[in-house]
Computed example of a mutant assay.
Amino acid sequence: MHLRIRAAKAHDAAVVPEIMLQAMEDVIFRFIQKEDKKEAVHFLTALFQQSENLYSHENTFVAVDPEGNIMGSLTGYDGDHFIALRQPILEIMQKQYGNDLIPEPETTGQEFYIDSVAVSPTARGKGVGSELLKHAITYAKTHGFRQIGLLVDLDNPNAKKLYERLGFTLGNKMPFAGGEYYHMYIRFV
């Protein structure tokens, strides 16, 4: 599949939040305190269209096919800015959903952190996720990051294998939002 990877734009919100939700449905349901896909997409769409938050279009790349359809997305950011980027999300969780949860940090900083990678159901198994990850690795290298990192669910061995194939090293176990994950990373130094 021939893809072009580009920075997301606010108007991509018509498609991207639904794709993103596939990668983090359980976490978003915890944030909004209900298993409601429509409400979860609404929550992500509002954040995607805004700036300066973890799920903003500013922190997202999209994979686009030759017809202009978005086939996948990758959201990532400078891990040193995690706390500031998380704050708008915590405020919405508290104000709109009465949720005072403050999840554990996903990154300790000093890395370009990949928050989520998601592929449209129609494009699965066609290398879209790999292309997005390769793009993120190149982006992190060219923007002077010493490391790129992500979390992988202990119960997702296929994702772990994909990340290892792309050069990620298995790091420490970390709890996050009620689950257990491995931190995986590539150092560029």
Rank of each mutant, 00 (worst) to 15 (best):
A136T: 04
P66N: 03
L150G: 02
Q50Y: 10
F29D: 03
E91C: 02
Y55S: 09
E18T: 02
L54M: 14
V64A: 13
S116P: 00
H42K: 15
F112G: 00
K160V: 01
D80Q: 15
Y139Q: 01
E52T: 04
Q87C: 04
L162Q: 03
A7M: 04
F145V: 00
P157S: 07
G149L: 08
Q49Y: 12
R187N: 13
K38G: 09
L154I: 14
I70P: 15
Q94S: 13
T60Y: 14
K141Q: 15
K126V: 03
L21T: 00
M174R: 08
P157A: 06
L90E: 06
D36H: 07
E25W: 11
A140W: 12
T60F: 09
Y55C: 03
K9A: 11
I92V: 14
H11Q: 11
V119A: 11
Y97I: 06
R6C: 14
G125D: 04
G109V: 02
E180H: 07
E18V: 00
T60C: 07
E91A: 13
D36V: 07
I70L: 14
G72F: 14
I137G: 07
I114W: 09
V128P: 10
H143M: 06
A84N: 08
V16M: 11
I186N: 04
T142L: 10
V128W: 08
S130L: 03
K160R: 08
H183T: 04
H183V: 03
T45A: 14
T108H: 05
I148Q: 12
L21Q: 09
T45F: 14
K95I: 08
M93G: 11
V152Y: 13
G179F: 11
V189T: 10
E104K: 03
T108W: 08
R165E: 07
A13G: 11
F31C: 01
L151D: 03
V62I: 11
V64C: 13
D115F: 12
Y113S: 02
S56N: 03
A123K: 01
A10C: 05
L170W: 04
A84E: 14
E111Q: 14
S130P: 07
L132P: 03
I89W: 10
R165V: 00
E58S: 09
N69Q: 14
L151N: 12
E131A: 12
G149V: 07
G125I: 06
Y163P: 00
G179L: 06
T60V: 07
L101S: 06
K160Y: 10
Y55K: 04
K141P: 09
L133Y: 15
R146T: 11
M24H: 06
S130H: 10
G178N: 00
G68T: 01
R86M: 15
H11D: 13
Q94E: 13
I114L: 06
A7Q: 13
D155L: 15
E39W: 05
N158M: 10
L170F: 05
D78I: 09
E67F: 11
E35S: 10
K9D: 05
A123C: 01
H57V: 02
A8D: 09
L170D: 08
E18G: 15
G127P: 00
K34L: 10
L21K: 03
D115H: 11
G144P: 00
P105T: 02
R146Y: 11
N53M: 02
E91Y: 05
L133R: 08
D80K: 12
I89D: 04
K34Y: 11
V189Q: 12
F176D: 00
K37L: 10
Q147K: 15
